[in-house]
């Protein structure tokens, strides 16, 4: 919008949604790793209410990439707002990716849908600011936020409807029984179907497998309504980049 001038490419903000135990944090961390490995100038900011219990896929991760991820754990909604608003003062180099895990936890102590929207708009405005700062580079700053699937009614739903419009791309995670896709279920602890929705493009789906050791594999699912299955390998920009590159780095 205003004052944008010459701006580098702006990746589409992505909202990652799923119920408890659908592997949101693990996927988000993987996306951060992928984001940190793209180029040496990559700088990923990982915001979460608390540290991850363990770093998933850590052994497969390049040590260089993980050093480009900056972890910060604001304890409350207010702290998170304050932190995001001051990033332009505190960060010495512009972020190429901002990741926020557990938005629903922060929204728990947020007073109104308006303040919820302000937080998300501030995150988006901040990522646009970094994109502009990075306009000499080929990639802008991507924003990925994860949130627990909101309830149908009440405060959660109100907050959700105030913020969802800020995300043109939604990735829904659905825990799957695996029966209908004919996979050998032995040794599998979890199967998640990931469904990417973004207006103007074809829906895409992936199957995310967590084995007993907790390592994750991602494979594309053929499109339901189309017969071609070359949808994932293509050069698709921004949001899906993280998802699309993940299968190659499985542990």
């Amino acid at each position: 919008m205003a004052g944008a001038g010459a701006v580098g490419p702006r990746p589409r903000p992505l909202l990652l949604l799923g119920p408890t135990g659908s592997g949101r944090s693990t996927l988000l961390f993987r996306a951060a790793l992928v984001g940190a490995s793209v180029v040496s100038s990559a700088r990923v900011l990982f915001l979460a209410p608390r540290p991850l219990e363990r770093l998933p896929g850590g052994k497969a991760a390049g040590a260089g990439a993980i050093q480009r991820i900056h972890f910060l754990y604001p304890a409350s909604f207010q702290e998170l707002l304050q932190l995001v608003a001051s990033l332009h003062q505190t960060l010495s180099s512009s972020s190429s990716m901002i990741v926020l895990d557990g938005l629903e936890e922060y929204l728990n102590n947020c007073s109104s849908p308006c303040t919820a929207a302000q937080l998300v708009a501030l995150l988006l405005d901040t990522s646009n600011y970094f994109s502009q700062k990075r306009s000499h580079l080929s990639v802008g700053c991507q924003l990925i936020v994860s949130m627990k699937f909101p309830g149908e009614a009440g405060e959660e739903a109100e907050h959700f409807s105030a913020i969802e419009h800020y995300f043109p791309a939604h990735l829904w995670l659905h825990p799957d029984t695996g029966v209908d896709i004919g996979l050998d279920n032995q040794g599998l602890t979890k199967l998640i179907r990931a469904h990417l929705l973004q207006p103007g493009t074809k829906d895409q789906e992936w199957m995310v497998k967590f084995d007993a050791q907790g390592s994750m594999t991602i494979s594309p699912l053929p499109c339901k309504n189309e017969t071609e299955n070359d949808t994932v390998s293509g050069n698709r920009p921004s949001v899906s980049e993280a998802d699309a590159t993940v299968p190659s780095s499985q542990s």
Binding site: P113, Q118, Y129
Partner: peptide, 21 residues
């Protein structure tokens, strides 16, 4: 109001843009 995305702190923005659309 933020510079690069739609946000205004006024009540009308919350009610007629965010809520009712």
């Amino acid at each position: 109001c933020y510079a690069s995305c739609h946000f205004c702190s006024c009540p009308a923005f919350t009610f007629s843009v965010l809520r009712k659309g």
